[in-house]
Design a protein around this nucleic acid. Structure first.
Length: 125
DNA sequence: TGAGCAACCCGTCACGTCGT
DNA sequence: ACGACGTGACGGGTTGCTCA
């Protein structure tokens, strides 16, 4: 069982923002949210709109209404969680490929630096 | 071959944020 | 205020691998 604690530092200076994580409102600062508010979609199939509370009377009906609301909420949350995880995976993949690019870039720069050092250093023989 | 483990996925709860 | 939504945390299930 692993509890992934993901701490992505939010202090990156990015030039090529691919996924552009909008950062959680200034309050929580350091956590990126990979959220793009999707347009609210229609209810999943099989979900009935609940009757308006005004039309309910018996405790039985109230209980049924509460159950229906809860199930609807659970179902929506289930979908939201899936979508959230999907976005998070995509975001992490994006970061990983960015790391790979930057590593290559860094290596090249180090090599270039060494070359220039060789050229500029006084000959010692 | 069964146990142990790591990596992954899922559903749910709790909580913060946002729009009304 | 309140409801809707996004997401971290948690617990549990599944799968593939390794090792005795």
């Amino acid at each position: 069982m692993q509890k992934p604690i993901m701490a992505v530092t939010g202090d990156e200076t990015d030039e090529e923002t691919e996924l552009a994580p909008s950062h959680m409102a200034a309050t929580t600062g350091d956590m990126p949210t990979y959220q793009i508010r999707a347009p609210t979609t229609a209810l999943p199939q099989g979900v009935m709109m609940a009757a308006s509370p005004g039309s309910l009377h018996s405790p039985q009906q109230l209980a049924e209404e509460a159950t229906r609301k809860r199930e609807l909420r659970l179902m929506k949350n289930r979908e939201a969680a899936k979508e959230c995880r999907r976005r998070k995976k995509e975001y992490v993949k994006c970061l990983e490929s960015r790391v790979a690019v930057l590593e290559v870039q860094n290596k090249k720069l180090i090599e270039e630096l060494e070359t220039l050092k060789d050229i500029c250093s006084p000959k010692t023989d």
